[in-house]
Structure formats: C-alpha cells, structure tokens
Simulated assay, not measured.
Amino acid sequence: MAAEPTEPGAHYVMKSEEEVSRLSNQHEIIKDAMGGLILANIDLSTRPLRVLDSATADGTWIRDFASGYALVQHEIHGADIDPTNFPANPPAGTIYRVQDIKKSWPEDWKGTFDLVHQRLALVGAGPAQKEAVLNLAALVKPNGWIQLMEAENVFVDDQGPAMYDFVRLMKDMFIIMGAKIDLTRQIPGWLEEAGFTDIQDRLIDMKIGATNPNPRLAKQGVYSTAISATALSRFGKSLPPEKISLSQEKLDTLVTDLRTELFERGAVYPMRVVWARKKV
C-alpha cells in the first residue's frame, strides 16, 4: 500500500507498473518461504467463506488464493488506498473497493469476515498502526481468523554491506513515518486486546538472490528488492541529510551495489506471520 502524497514518505511511492511487478515477484518468493498462502487453521475447502485481502494492490494474492480453492467460490473482497491497479474485469465473487487502512471500514462489514488477510502494509499507517490492526480485527466474525505479515527490520548474521544499508534505510523510513520498528512484537498483544485467541506466529526467511536454491525465484528476489531500493533511495534523497543513516554517496550507489551483492552472495530478509482466531 502506497503512502498518500501529502504524508511523510510520499517520495517513497513507486510508479504503478513498478509496484505491480515488484509485488508479483515478491509474492511468489513469500509463498515459497511460507509453504503456501494461509497458515491460519481455517477450512477453506468445504463451504464458501467471506474473505478480505487488505492492501491488495492489483489483487495478486486474491487471484492465487482463488485458484488454490477453485472448487469453492468464496466471496473475496480486495481493498487498497489506490484503485489504479484494480482488475478491470474481476471474476465473479471478487469485489474491490478503495480503503485507507488508517480510516474506519464500512460499519456493515464489521464482524462479517471468516478470514482477514494483510501483508506488508502497516508502515503506511504510520503512528496509527495499532488502530489499523484493531480496525481490521473488528471485521472478523466470531470464530473467524486474521493473518498479518510484516518485516522484522533486523540485521541478520552474515549480511552483506549493501543489504545492511538497505535495512538501515528501511528503518529510517519507519522512524520518519512514525511507524514502530518492532511492529511484529506488538501485533500479538494488539490481537489479544481485540478479543482473539489461538494467537500464533512464525518467522520466515525470504531468500533473495544467491541464497535461494530456485534460480527463477533467486532472480525475482533481486529484481523486486532492487525496485524497492530504487524507491527507498529516492525517498532518502528527498530528506535532509541528518534524517537518514546513509550518505549521499551511498544513496547514489545503493541500487547497483545491492543488485551485485544479491546476485553474488544473496541475502535473507526475515518476516513474521501472525495469525489468530476471534473468540466466540
């Protein structure tokens, strides 16, 4: 989900076609690392359910989800702040709407979804991340499930210098936008506060470049990360030098250095999936 043009971090917004391509490539790598799309213990194969994919972008997750459960036609809703990339002719049973995760969802949606999914979007809520999670939680019906994924934003062992700089710059963006860097540690408590139980989480390693044993996914990881680094560099250059951790020289070479490093030695980018069930 992109930031609004009037917010801090507006220069981090990517061109539409770049963002769609990045998300599509990233989606496959994340799915491979997770071993699927859904970790929540929900039966999706026997009856139609009402499902929401928040921060859906062009609906890549929705299309993959629908194809994986083709024998049951679920009612699937996709929501995003930017409708530019919504499919022109979505398949039957799939509905898209414009929605800012920082704002209230439709009143008649509350307590109606069997599954609410959102991935890598909460930085867009800035200091209102908790409110964004609680608003999503309110959409889940009793005994329904929520699944959220966010980056760990931590430095890992044996991380190359370019990837280290990339993570440093990502942390700078979180701070400037007022987002919590330790977000993944906060989410379970917020869900418990919202009336959820069976709260579980799993750390997954998104393997980028040479660390990924699948040659196709290895290339896709380099491609999608380079697009993110390009946008991050633009974001960094738009700010006063004292606001960011990297020098102008490092900002100028970050994308090239990162691409080379990822092809040669690769990297691991940790993410955490949190899922929970709404109490009856």
Rank of each mutant, 00 (worst) to 15 (best):
Pro48Cys: 03
Pro48Gln: 07
Pro48Asn: 04
Leu49Val: 08
Leu49Thr: 06
Arg50Cys: 07
Val51Pro: 02
Leu52Lys: 05
Leu52Gln: 00
Leu52Ser: 03
Asp53Asn: 14
Asp53Gly: 08
Asp53Cys: 06
Ala55Leu: 01
Thr56Trp: 05
Thr56Ala: 09
Thr56Phe: 00
Thr60His: 09
Thr60Arg: 12
Trp61Ser: 01
Ile62Met: 06
Arg63Val: 05
Arg63Tyr: 14
Arg63Thr: 05
Arg63Met: 15
Arg63His: 15
Ala66Tyr: 06
Gly68Thr: 08
Gly68Lys: 02
Gly68Phe: 02
Gly68Met: 03
Gly68Gln: 13
Tyr69Leu: 07
Tyr69Ile: 03
His74Glu: 08
His77Pro: 04
His77Asp: 05
Ala79Trp: 05
Ala79Ser: 15
Ala79Val: 09
Asp80Phe: 08
Ile81Cys: 00
Asp82Ala: 13
Pro83Trp: 05
Thr84Val: 08
Pro87Met: 02
Ala88Ile: 09
Asn89Lys: 13
Pro90Lys: 02
Pro91Thr: 04
Ala92Ser: 13
Gly93Leu: 05
Tyr96Arg: 03
Arg97Ala: 14
Arg97Gly: 04
Val98Gln: 00
Val98Met: 01
Gln99Thr: 00
Gln99Lys: 04
Gln99Ala: 03
Gln99Glu: 03
Gln99Pro: 02
Asp100Ala: 08
Ile101Thr: 00
Lys102Pro: 03
Lys102Arg: 15
Trp105His: 00
Pro106Glu: 11
Glu107Leu: 08
Asp108Lys: 15
Asp108Cys: 14
Lys110Leu: 13
Lys110Glu: 13
Lys110Cys: 11
Gly111Val: 10
Gly111Leu: 09
Asp114Trp: 06
Asp114Met: 06
Leu115Trp: 09
Leu115Gly: 06
Val116Arg: 14
His117Gln: 13
Gln118Ser: 15
Arg119Asp: 00
Arg119Tyr: 01
Arg119His: 01
Leu122Trp: 03
Gly124Leu: 06
Ala125Thr: 01
Gly126Lys: 00
Pro127Cys: 01
Ala128Gln: 15
Lys130Gly: 04
Lys130Ser: 07
Glu131Thr: 13
Glu131Lys: 15
Val133Met: 08
Leu134Glu: 14
Leu136Ala: 14
Leu136Arg: 12
Ala137Lys: 08
Leu139Ala: 14
Lys141Asp: 11
Lys141Asn: 11
Pro142Cys: 11
Asn143Arg: 14
Asn143Cys: 12
Trp145Met: 09
Gln147Ala: 03
Glu150Ala: 07
Glu150Val: 07
Ala151Asp: 11
Glu152Leu: 01
Asn153Phe: 14
Asn153Met: 15
Asn153Asp: 09
Val156Ala: 07
Asp157Ala: 12
Asp157Gln: 02
Gln159Asp: 10
Gln159Tyr: 03
Gly160Pro: 03
Pro161Leu: 09
Pro161Thr: 10
Met163His: 15
Met163Arg: 14
Tyr164Glu: 11
Phe166Gly: 05
Phe166Ala: 04
Phe166Leu: 08
Phe166His: 09
